[in-house]
Simulated assay, not measured.
Amino acid sequence: MEQISSLVSGEEYARSFNPGLYSCARCGHALYAHTSKFTGPCLWPSFRAPLEVSSLHTIAVAQGAYNHYSCSVVELYCAGCSLFLGHAFEDGATTGDTHPDARWRHCVLSLSLQFA
């Protein structure tokens, strides 16, 4: 069933944990290291933090405006070309990230990523 789910959703990177680097599918700008990836609650791949703070451009979403989330939410864009990547939620520690630095959960659309 998991294979069918990834085929339907196009989320080929959701359950992949191979060593490497995730970059923007449009411009190749480096975004995430495989070491920041974890299994989150959504179909999209989850990351705890970008490769560098300067890897992303973010826009804050008004409290409760995105699906009634009570935590902080931001939209994520590639800092290289402004491609929309997904959202970050300040609920990583309560949604599957067991890393000591767990705080944010970046849910990123696989189609916006390339992996090497």
Rank of each mutant, 00 (worst) to 15 (best):
G20N: 08
E52T: 15
Y77C: 00
T95S: 15
C42L: 12
E52S: 15
G80K: 05
E2T: 15
E75M: 01
C24E: 08
G80A: 04
S70P: 14
R103Y: 06
I4C: 12
L83M: 04
F47S: 06
P41D: 13
S82L: 14
S23K: 05
L43M: 14
R15T: 10
F17G: 07
L51N: 09
F84V: 07
S5Q: 15
S23V: 02
P19S: 10
C71T: 01
G20A: 08
S110G: 09
R103L: 12
H99Q: 12
V61T: 01
S6I: 13
S82Q: 13
S54K: 08
C78W: 11
C42I: 07
A116Q: 14
Y13A: 11
Q3I: 11
D97V: 05
A79G: 06
S36A: 15
C78A: 06
S70H: 13
T35N: 08
P50F: 05
F89W: 02
Y77H: 05
G92C: 09
I4F: 12
A102D: 13
L83Y: 00
P19D: 08
A79L: 06
F89N: 00
A65Y: 02
A25T: 07
A65H: 07
W44A: 10
L51C: 08
N67S: 15
M1I: 14
Y77P: 00
P50Q: 04
C27F: 06
E2M: 14
L113R: 06
S5N: 13
A25L: 10
V53I: 13
H34M: 06
L76I: 02
Y66A: 04
L56M: 10
A30R: 08
E75H: 02
E52N: 15
A25G: 07
P45L: 00
N18F: 12
A33V: 07
A30E: 11
G86Y: 02
P41I: 15
W104F: 04
I59L: 10
R48T: 04
P19I: 04
E12Q: 10
L109G: 14
H87Y: 10
A88V: 07
A30H: 08
P45N: 01
E90G: 09
S82T: 13
V8I: 12
F47Q: 07
S112N: 10
A25W: 10
S5P: 05
A33G: 13
W104D: 06
L76V: 02
Y22H: 05
P45K: 00
S112Y: 06
A93D: 15
L21T: 11
F89Q: 00
G64A: 13
G20M: 08
V73S: 00
F17N: 08
L51F: 06
V61P: 00
C107I: 02
C27S: 01
V73H: 01
F115R: 01
A62R: 09
F115H: 04
E12S: 07
V108T: 09
H34P: 05
R26N: 04
S82I: 12
I4T: 13
D101M: 13
H68R: 09
E52M: 14
Y66K: 03
A49W: 07
L83Q: 06
C71Y: 03
G40W: 09
Y32W: 11
G28A: 04
H29C: 03
S70A: 15
E12F: 14
T35P: 03
L43K: 15
S46M: 05
H68L: 11
C71R: 00
E90F: 09
Y22Q: 09
